[in-house]
């Protein structure tokens, strides 16, 4: 079977037991923002299978370098320098090329550059907190940043988010759209976090934890973390019932 060109078959059904449920009362904001009726299922049409393509030409040179993309010339963001890299795979285990990844995060002190953010940790004048890249032919991506700090948030009296980076992923189809978060190996806040714990399955949580990757660490510069992400797979179109002339 030809492995070139975009997939055009229907996506595998989403495993809604593996994802967090809409309503998880321990994450208080979900209580008023969770649909209460069952979602209605239907098989994919062109509206779900297709999606926009993002060309590498939209990317600026520093888009995947959060240490420098907001910094004054000659300056860089404060914090522990890290490289985050990995592959975007589909559920069939194939690398997915052309995936738009967008990431955002707090600075090294746990502070976001956002109007609604009030944590007392200071902003870093040389850190914006956003970056993006597009996977290559094999589904590989890489970016450079500083390790985000943990921060407190209003949920329980004393809830802290573990260090994390938010990821938005755009594969080939609109039904593949995914937003998630990456955590760091051995962070003691992971099991305490109500947002992590919206996922009620240890194996699924493990998928969100990046591992320290000493082999790819850049000596005297930055540690590397490896984080692979899996997007929904697609059925082969060779099994689809096709109408004559379609």
């Amino acid at each position: 079977m030809d492995n070139e060109g975009p997939e055009t078959g229907a996506f595998f059904a989403r495993d809604r037991q593996w994802h967090p449920k809409a309503l998880v009362p321990e994450y208080k904001t979900s209580i008023l923002r969770s649909p209460q009726k069952a979602p209605i299922s239907f098989s994919n049409t062109a509206s779900e299978i297709t999606g926009p393509a993002f060309g590498h030409d939209i990317l600026g040179e520093l888009d995947n370098d959060l240490i420098h993309n907001f910094a004054e010339p000659g300056k860089s963001a404060l914090g522990q320098r890290i490289v985050v890299h990995g592959r975007i795979l589909d559920e069939n285990g194939r690398g997915v090329p052309g995936v738009l990844l967008e990431f955002w995060q707090a600075n090294a002190g746990g502070r976001y550059r956002h109007k609604n953010e009030g944590y007392l940790a200071p902003l870093d004048p040389n850190f914006g907190g956003c970056g993006r890249t597009i996977t290559d032919k094999t589904g590989y991506y890489v970016f450079r940043t500083v390790k985000p700090g943990a921060y407190p948030w209003p949920n329980g009296v004393n809830d802290w988010r573990p260090s994390h980076i938010h990821f938005s992923l755009f594969g080939s189809g609109f039904a593949q759209r995914l937003i998630t978060q990456m955590y760091f190996e051995n962070d003691p806040l992971i099991p305490l976090c109500p947002i992590v714990q919206t996922i009620n399955n240890a194996a699924a949580i493990k998928q969100l934890v990046a591992q320290l990757d000493m082999a790819n660490t850049i000596p005297m510069d930055a540690r590397a973390y490896k984080f692979d992400i899996v997007l929904r797979g697609q059925r082969s179109t060779m099994f689809e019932n096709k109408r004559q002339g379609n």
Partner: peptide
């Protein structure tokens, strides 16, 4: 021989930083 889709997490209150900076 099949992988599981990476689980979703909320976009959180600062989604604009990443998606509409």
């Amino acid at each position: 021989d099949q992988l599981k889709e990476t689980p979703s997490q909320t976009a959180g209150p600062y989604v604009h930083i990443g998606c509409t900076p």
